[in-house]
Nucleic acid binder design. Structure first.
Length: 554
RNA sequence: GCGCCCGUAGCUCAACGGAUAGAGCAUCUGACUACGGAUCAGAAGGUUAGAGGUUCGAGUCCUCUCGGGCGCGCCA
């Protein structure tokens, strides 16, 4: 029996108690029935705190409430035991073997097992990374690449429509500094103090000069523009290639320049104006964000007629909404948390509901430690650790998995030495190993000509404690996916996979799957092979949501 | 000064307001002539920074204190 089915049973038990007047009348639909795995498995397979929740409403103390409920629940088929515990928890122990009915469900659903419809019909835009095209992607970007993509996967696993978007900041002062730096490097001049000093600047300069030798003959100003544009194109292409290789694919790349050229900025300002939140002061144009919780109003157009960066942000939000997105998600680094209030205010000024139409996820920065010393990340200083570096060291799977298995609001300290040398201790291998191990068992079954798929699956022979635990863990998967989607927290998938891998390894240790030696194939072997295949499927499904591969061999 | 985030085992981190706060690493002890040991079983390790409060119940919510990170421009 699944947790959802148990919840239904509980609800009808409450209804019955109301009808029999053991409970004071309450609206049976007015509360959420939570069924979850007890932390301590000795408490049973599933537990509910329903009695604690509704005891006041029904006019009894929690334990009395629970005792009425279990009188009814205890008669339901499929439960071996239903009992009260602690302050009024109801613990359910499933009848042996009943959990096995899940196996055919998983195998029939295949890669769709775990997918849900909780976000059906919602159209999400998730914007992440959005780096300046003035250098390689660094470690902070890498966290967003992994997490942003995983959130997108989790959202769509719950039925949402998702667009991954990258905002290219290709306009403004930084681009000019970038261009000037490359130009200087090409000419052998010292790079400007406030320019970019990384080694990649020289490399870009060399590539450009080699491909376009005539650039050296241009007038200084013209030459500068040419260097800037060539370098921009090369650097953007590199970011795109690196992200592709990182298994993170964007649906839309929005250029800030194009946003301006297309008239989107004027359109955005018009929308804000129509809602009456613009005003002029000191010769500048302002947005009254303080109406909606910002701590100061913001300038959109400076007194000299130039548009601010904030004007682009504003226009960009309006533009996204006009493209039909219900929810715009932004992943921002902790150093941008000051933007939260102003962006929420932008949504409100545009006539939207900031609690619904815009979501700002703030992630803490990633710190890298090597040999006990913090490695400082500074693009300008040039001693950056790039996405490429990390992938070169540990591989795409380990890098992605490591970055998504923590909630984004915890600052992350990665020990580079540990990551490089102790790759076997990385939990990603633990999970992948479980998958590969199952693949190996199934391969051997094939070699032994055990065609278990031609036999029917008998769940009743699965009575071993480890089998039960594994099956119950498998049953949790859909609710984990739903929770991860609701909270935008893909790390829940990773943590679940580790638990599932652990349950499988324990099962494997305690339950022989294939017949030993010359022993004949019996129903237990068959059933366990089915369990293996179901576990393999769920591991593969979960790893896919993480953007990590599920290897057949390691 | 104002604001946001964080503080959990030696280290890195978990824990929709739920039961005895959990994993991994590190330390110690065990298991196979191997269905893949990249595994499993066990030991040890905690006043969840501190003090109040809210309630059936607080690591989680509220207030204050201490400690750490970050942000507060007609910059981008």
């Amino acid at each position: 029996m699944s947790p959802e089915e148990i919840a239904v049973q509980i609800r009808s038990a409450v209804q019955a108690c109301v009808v029999s007047e053991d409970f004071q009348p309450i609206d049976v639909e007015s509360f959420e029935v939570v069924v979850e795995r007890p932390k301590d498995r000795a408490h049973g397979d599933w537990a509910s705190n329903i009695a604690l929740q509704i005891s006041k409403l029904v006019g009894l103390n929690p334990r009395e409430t629970a005792s009425h409920l279990i009188k009814i629940l205890g008669t339901v088929e499929g439960f071996e035991k239903v009992e009260i515990a602690g302050p009024g928890f109801i613990n359910f122990t499933l009848a042996k073997g009943s959990a096995g009915n899940l196996v055919p469900v998983i195998l029939n659903a295949g890669s769709a097992y775990g997918r849900g419809e909780s976000l059906q019909g919602q159209n999400f835009n998730i914007e992440f990374i959005s780096a300046n095209p003035t250098g390689p992607l660094h470690l902070g970007h890498t966290r967003w690449a992994a997490v942003g993509d995983a959130i997108a996967r989790v959202l769509s696993a719950n039925g949402a429509l998702v667009t991954r978007e990258f905002y290219v900041n290709d306009r403004g002062v930084q681009m000019d500094k970038f261009g000037a730096s490359v130009q200087a490097a090409a000419l052998g001049n010292p790079i400007p103090e406030d320019g970019y000093h990384g080694q990649y600047i020289k490399e870009l300069a060399d590539v450009i000069v080699q491909k376009h030798p005539e650039i050296l003959n241009l007038q200084t100003d013209e030459q500068f523009l040419s260097f800037r544009e060539h370098a921009y194109a090369l650097q953007l292409k590199e970011q795109q290639d690196v992200l592709d290789n990182f298994n993170t694919h964007f649906d839309v790349w929005t250029s800030e320049r194009r946003l301006h050229d297309s008239g989107a900025v004027e359109k955005g300002l018009a929308v804000l104006k129509s809602h009456g939140h613009l005003f002029e002061q000191d010769g500048a144009l302002w947005l009254r964000t303080t109406d909606f919780g910002d701590d100061k109003d913001r300038v959109l157009e400076k007194s000299n007629g130039e548009l601010t960066y904030f004007a682009s942000d504003t226009a960009y939000y309006v533009d996204k909404r006009s493209r039909g997105f219900d929810v715009c998600i932004y992943l921002l680094g902790a150093d941008h948390h000051g933007y939260v209030n102003r962006l929420r205010a932008v949504a409100a000024c545009a006539g939207d509901n900031p609690d619904i139409n815009i979501e700002l996820l703030i992630g803490q920065l990633v710190k890298m430690v090597k040999g006990g010393e913090e490695v400082r990340l500074s693009k300008r200083a040039g001693n950056i650790i790039t996405l490429e570096d990390l992938v070169d060291e540990v591989g795409v799977d380990a890098a992605r998995y490591t970055l998504i298995r923590y909630p984004v609001d915890t600052p992350l300290v990665l020990d580079l030495d540990l990551l490089i040398q102790r790759t076997n201790d990385n939990p990603v291998y633990y999970v992948q190993y479980a998958h590969a191990r199952i693949a190996s068992v199934l391969r051997q079954a094939e070699d032994l000509k055990i065609d278990y798929r031609n036999h029917s699956f008998e769940s009743s022979v699965l009575v071993h404690e480890k089998e039960n635990e594994l099956l119950n863990t498998l049953a949790q998967y859909p609710s984990i996916v739903e929770k991860a989607g609701e909270l935008r927290q893909p790390h829940r998938i990773a943590r679940y996979l580790e638990e599932l891998a652990n349950a499988y390894h324990k099962f494997y240790d305690g339950c022989r799957v294939l017949p030993q030696g010359e022993a004949p194939v019996d129903a237990v072997n068959i059933a366990r092979l089915y369990v293996c295949e179901a576990t393999k499927q769920v591991l593969a499904n979960g790893l896919d949501l993480c953007g990590v591969s599920a290897p057949e061999r390691m």
